[in-house]
Design a protein around this nucleic acid. Sequence first.
DNA 1: TTATAGAGTTCAAAAATTGAACTAAATGGG
DNA 2: CCCATTTAGTTCAATTTTTGAACTCTATAA
Lengths: 152, 152
Amino acid sequence: MSTTNYQKHHCPIAQALAELGDQWTLLIVRDALIAGPRRFNEFQESLGISRNLLTLRLAQLCASGILERVPITDTKRHAYAPTQKCRDLQIVILAMAEWGEKWRTDPDIHHLEILEKSTGRPVTVQYIQTEDGKIVDPDNIEVVRHGISNEP
Amino acid sequence: MSTTNYQKHHCPIAQALAELGDQWTLLIVRDALIAGPRRFNEFQESLGISRNLLTLRLAQLCASGILERVPITDTKRHAYAPTQKCRDLQIVILAMAEWGEKWRTDPDIHHLEILEKSTGRPVTVQYIQTEDGKIVDPDNIEVVRHGISNEP
DNA sequence: TTATAGAGTTCAAAAATTGAACTAAATGGG
DNA sequence: CCCATTTAGTTCAATTTTTGAACTCTATAA
């Protein structure tokens, strides 16, 4: 997670990727979101990440407030729980999952169904108009950058 | 972009991250999406990535059909243009941008405004019900994994 | 109380990334 | 058409990351 280069572009995407854009961070976040509070060894076994790097990544995720060390009741052990900042990443990760399914190469890929908890109805990630909540076609999107010289 | 470990989880998120999850790939994609067809040196100067690694990443992105080498008219030079697979990543990247702005640490961060091209109206990335297009609260989302043993 | 599981730490080897210099083809100006 | 410059890379040593395996030091369980 080198902060060397694209950190300095004052771009929210570059900022996000400075925090999330390495090999493992988003997978750790996925694990934390989908499996709930998880412990060191659970992450390690589920991901196959090397243990010293996991130590480092968990520390960084805690430092940036994406995960939180929480005690496990009745023990002196602890787990890593997703914070609100982490839960706010769920839509990013699910948008990525939808992309991964649409453009899959592995035919055995798992299907992730996104449901509304209260009704069980299927849900997708889409562009919607802020004012009236109407769905907007992805090809009909334009991005305007404010406070900018010439770069993304 | 090591295909070593999390590739083998048949998870669409892991699949997506195997294609996108290194330091530079999503920044290259962002550049290609926001700035349109771009040339080698433009990527290099905008990102500050080392040239040999850029060569490698562009080759991988072309190989996986996210970018396409297109000739520039009236010259023998070429640029790298986003494909549909790349344009389908825009929602992922903009979801990430919204997260980056919400949780920004850099106060000088640029604001990205997402607009509907045809009307100029503001747009956000949201969960919506597939059936009736109604917006769903992010805290009211549940993910069900199909075809799965025990891992994400 | 003793064995085992959990949560790391240590450190050498391997892999990825950088940075700087080097090429060869394409283009532009005179 | 010729020469200088730009473009799009390539090469390679030095640095930085990541891995993998073994080790340590509590907790917990029997």
